[in-house]
Design a protein around this nucleic acid. Structure first.
Lengths: 110, 110
DNA sequence: TATACTCATCGTATAAAAACGATAAATAAC
DNA sequence: GTTATTTATCGTTTTTATACGATGAGTATA
């Protein structure tokens, strides 16, 4: 009976959740950190750094790309990836709009 | 062969990923939004609002609590929950320290 | 053309997440 | 003391995520 009910929530909630899911694995955090440090990376470079098989890394890259967090383009036989900073801005903005503005109303608790 | 390798990444990466995982489901986003709006909530109130069974909501509340994002205390037979704003501050700070400071080095891409 | 290299995809196996009903524990009300 | 209320936990089922090896498609090099 595991009928997922994600679609019964608001679009905003779904979007923010999907964004969070994309960075919910340390490998993907590591990839993003590496891309931020080196500006751009070839898939093979990432495979060298991470303790994961090439196919697994490729899978994580695909998820990050699907979430819009990174961009990728082919360079001959290689694939070059870089961070999509605009997407990060958007994530930050959504995160803020959901919680930050409500914070001042919460001085005390329970 | 699904031996999870999360422990092979840095503590910081694991922590940030765990944080993100906690908010990677629209139900948990909705719970946080509700708690932010009402300051505090009884479990039953959350069950009324969400399109999920009581046991499922309780499960999501447990995950949010384990992640440190919410606090809960019993009030008679009821359980009262509220947001742990300090944890959100910490999350924001970690998120920033990982990416924000590297942004200026990334004007162009690929 | 043949060979080597890079990387995405496929197939597969295991672990984790998501959802529910049922039950249990604790407190309140009668 | 019995009953009702509230919520956490247990057990189960289905879906999704994680990870790998193998294969294939594409590009470079000999």
């Amino acid at each position: 009976m595991a009928i997922h009910k994600k679609e019964e929530f608001s679009t905003k909630e779904q979007h923010l959740a999907a964004f969070a899911k994309a960075i919910s694995h340390p490998a993907r955090i590591a990839i993003l950190g590496l891309l931020a440090k080196r500006n751009e990376c070839i898939c093979g470079e990432i495979v060298e750094v991470l303790p994961l098989a090439q196919s697994t890394v490729s899978q994580h890259l695909k998820e990050l790309k699907n979430a819009g967090l990174i961009d990728g383009e082919t360079d001959g036989p290689r694939s070059c990836y870089c961070i999509n900073w605009k997407a990060f801005e958007k994530f930050n903005a959504e995160f803020h709009s959901l919680f930050e503005k409500l914070k001042e109303a919460n001085a005390k608790c329970c």
